[in-house]
């Protein structure tokens, strides 16, 4: 029987949650026995190739490309998991939600004290994904099945969660593994 497939992505995140996944150390060999990796920054596959059992979402949605990617994950994954505070709450990037987008861009490209931009233009190339009005947590864009808070969730939390989901057991992590920081 083919191994279950797992896909992962980092949307508006810092890859810290992926680093935490790599932090399972030698258990990564066990993980490779348990699953095949589909689309993921770990193998650099660009699009999901076939149906996946688990999709891990790091990061919230800050631009139109993030929305496209998370929709691809929702279409192709049986179980979608928000991994980390950015996916569950918007996280640090959501600090910009406290400031209107126009002001944010003007501060970054025109008024900022260290900005050198003689043209005074704000980048608007069609190759650059358009920013959303604010940063959204994953579950405000698509249906998300499980949430794993933490900045990042610890390697032990990720390992326990992935194993529970693969074994189709309820995801009940011990107190010490659920943290918001």
């Amino acid at each position: 029987m083919a191994k279950p497939r797992i896909a992962t992505t980092s949307l508006c995140g810092c890859f810290g949650c992926h680093m935490s996944l790599l932090d399972i150390d030698e258990r990564i060999l066990q993980l490779a026995e348990l699953v095949d990796f589909d689309r993921s920054p770990i193998d650099d596959i660009k699009h999901i190739s076939q149906r996946c059992r688990i999709g891990l979402i790091e990061g919230g949605c800050a631009n139109e490309e993030n929305v496209e990617v998370i929709r691809e994950f929702r279409r192709n994954c049986d179980i979608l998991v928000s991994v980390g505070d950015c996916a569950t709450t918007g996280g640090l990037p959501a600090l910009r939600n406290l400031v209107p987008l126009k002001e944010c861009l003007e501060e970054a490209y025109i008024h900022g004290p260290s900005v050198h931009n003689p043209s005074g233009e704000i980048p608007n190339d069609e190759e650059i994904p358009l920013l959303l009005n604010k940063v959204y947590p994953a579950h405000e864009v698509v249906k998300v099945d499980y949430h794993l808070p933490g900045c990042p969730p610890s390697a032990d939390a990720l390992w326990a969660a992935i194993n529970a989901l693969l074994a189709e057991e309820p995801l009940e992590l011990p107190y010490q593994l659920i943290k918001y920081d």
């Binding site: 928000s82 505070d85 569950t88 709450t89 996280g91 640090l92 947590p137 579950h139 499980y146 949430h147 794993l148 808070p149 900045c151 107190y175 659920i178 943290k179 918001y180 920081d181």
Partner: peptide
């Protein structure tokens, strides 16, 4: 929580943990 100095000693956060709030 990720940059709050009170994190770990915060009663609101602790209440979230105790009540099992993931999101």
């Amino acid at each position: 929580c990720m940059f709050c100095e009170k994190s770990g000693n915060c009663e609101l956060q602790a209440m979230g943990y105790r009540m099992g709030i993931d999101v």
